[in-house]
Deep mutational scan, measured.
Amino acid sequence: AVTGSQTALLLRAFEKDRFPGIAAREELARETGLPESRIQIWFQNRR
């Protein structure tokens, strides 16, 4: 499950760019500790 702090970080990124590229998703994966594929799905679901 995604924690509150991970969600906050993802929401901030989403406000800046609703369609992040692979580099941005990989950076978010490093920052959150989540797999990049999970980040991609999160953005798809959020849109």
Rank of each mutant, 00 (worst) to 15 (best):
A1D: 13
A1V: 11
A1F: 13
A1R: 12
V2A: 07
T3Q: 06
T3N: 11
G4V: 14
G4A: 15
G4D: 15
G4N: 14
S5I: 13
S5K: 13
S5F: 14
S5W: 15
Q6S: 05
Q6T: 07
Q6K: 05
Q6N: 06
T7L: 15
T7G: 08
T7Y: 15
T7N: 14
T7C: 15
T7M: 15
A8M: 11
A8F: 08
A8R: 11
A8Y: 08
A8I: 13
A8L: 13
A8Q: 11
L9M: 11
L9R: 09
L9Q: 09
L9C: 09
L10K: 00
L10W: 02
L11Y: 05
L11M: 12
L11A: 07
L11V: 12
L11N: 10
L11C: 13
L11Q: 11
R12D: 08
R12C: 11
R12S: 10
R12N: 08
A13T: 03
A13Y: 14
A13K: 02
A13D: 02
F14Y: 12
F14G: 00
F14D: 02
F14V: 00
E15R: 09
E15T: 07
E15W: 09
E15G: 06
K16L: 11
K16N: 10
K16P: 01
K16V: 10
K16C: 08
D17G: 04
D17H: 07
D17F: 05
D17R: 03
R18V: 05
R18P: 15
P20A: 03
G21F: 02
G21T: 13
G21C: 07
G21H: 05
G21R: 04
I22P: 14
I22Q: 14
I22C: 08
I22K: 15
A23T: 09
A23L: 12
A23Q: 12
A23N: 09
A24S: 07
A24M: 12
R25D: 01
R25M: 15
R25P: 01
E26K: 13
E26R: 14
E26H: 11
E27V: 11
E27D: 09
E27K: 13
E27Y: 08
L28D: 00
L28P: 00
L28R: 01
L28F: 02
L28M: 06
A29I: 04
A29V: 06
A29C: 05
R30V: 07
R30A: 08
R30N: 06
E31A: 14
E31M: 14
E31P: 00
E31R: 12
E31L: 15
E31D: 07
E31S: 11
E31V: 14
T32M: 04
G33L: 03
G33P: 00
L34I: 08
P35T: 14
P35L: 08
E36Q: 09
E36C: 05
E36R: 03
E36H: 06
S37C: 12
S37P: 10
S37I: 12
S37V: 10
R38E: 15
R38P: 02
R38V: 15
R38I: 15
I39D: 02
I39G: 01
Q40H: 12
Q40A: 13
Q40W: 09
Q40I: 13
I41K: 10
I41T: 10
W42R: 01
W42F: 03
W42N: 02
F43I: 02
F43A: 00
F43P: 03
Q44D: 11
Q44F: 07
Q44V: 08
Q44C: 12
Q44N: 08
Q44S: 08
N45M: 12
R46F: 10
R46V: 08
R47M: 07
R47H: 05
R47Y: 04
